[in-house]
């Protein structure tokens, strides 16, 4: 029978390794006595946008922070289980965190440009890696700003201080700063909650473009945003992964009642 609309529905439980960007196996995390993540097991597909949704305190930001070991910075945190990226368990004690965080970039809720020029912001990570040749830096800055759809707006004022940019531009600059390191995974923790609705749509459109270059995992309180931007969505509740499927299914026909209650605003 004729198919009018094409849909991709990967089998997330049996995702082959070459299509998996992040594989989480039996992940548990404690902050002191508090058990925050409970036996999370999931495979995040490569070159797709995966959204993590759930109530405040459900563990979605904690989970995304596990993917580049940002939780290591929190005292009394204890992680068990494996997170496989590029065939390596990043929870291994010998993992090089600097390399990991170059490969797995992260952008936070509030744009946090450094108090320096736009140019210096974008090549900050590259300079930390020891790259000094001007030509290489110029190219990297241009490419990163083009990918972040900011180049046309700032190409004539690259050496002005980044704090003069608008909120939406600052957030795209921060994304460009992460992209300059050519990450294979980009983690976005509430990237648009401090932005107005139209700027939010611009950033969302940017995400759709960026997935050609990298895998994106986004945490959002905004269910509508998760529905709009993501290919796959995971719903977490009190540290447990309740449902994880393609977003079309999750937002039209969720399998679990708990998910249905949450996305329809019946959450008790």
């Amino acid at each position: 029978m004729l198919k009018l609309f094409e849909r991709e529905q990967l089998n997330l439980a049996k995702l082959p390794a070459e299509q998996t960007a992040i594989e989480v196996r039996d992940l548990n995390l404690w902050f002191g006595d508090k058990h925050v993540l409970h036996n999370i097991t999931m495979r995040i597909p490569r070159h797709r946008i995966t959204a993590l949704i759930g109530q405040s305190g459900c563990g979605k930001s904690t989970l995304i922070s596990c993917f580049n070991r940002m939780n290591d910075l929190i005292d009394n945190s204890l992680t068990e289980g494996e997170i496989i990226i590029d065939g390596r368990n990043i929870n291994h004690k010998k993992e090089n965190l600097s390399t990991l965080r170059s490969n797995v970039g992260m952008v936070f809720q509030r744009p946090n440009p450094f108090p320096m020029s736009i140019y210096d912001n974008v090549c900050y990570g590259l300079r930390l890696q020891g790259i000094k040749q001007r030509r290489l830096l110029d190219d990297a800055v241009e490419q990163a700003l083009i990918k972040a759809v900011l180049w046309d707006e700032v190409k004539d004022r690259l050496f002005e201080t980044a704090t003069t940019l608008s909120g939406g531009q600052q957030q795209r600059l921060v994304i460009a700063r992460a992209l300059a390191l050519k990450p294979s995974i980009l983690l976005l923790d509430e990237p648009t909650s401090a932005l107005d609705p139209l700027t939010t749509l611009t950033i969302e459109e940017l995400m759709a473009d960026l997935k050609k270059h990298c895998t994106i995992v986004i945490v959002t309180h905004n269910m509508q945003q998760a529905a709009r931007v993501s290919d796959y969505t995971a719903f977490l509740h009190q540290g447990e992964l309740v449902e994880y499927s393609d977003s079309d299914t999750l937002f039209t026909l969720p399998h679990k009642k708990q998910t249905e209650d949450y996305i329809t605003g019946r959450y008790g």
Binding site: M1, L2, L4
Partner: peptide, 21 residues
């Protein structure tokens, strides 16, 4: 075939409403 087209378009309308608001 016509019946199937109706079902598919209806489903797509539902999907767009759910995802795009």
């Amino acid at each position: 075939k016509v019946n199937s087209m109706e079902s598919q378009i209806d489903e797509e309308c539902l999907r767009i409403i759910a995802k795009r608001h």
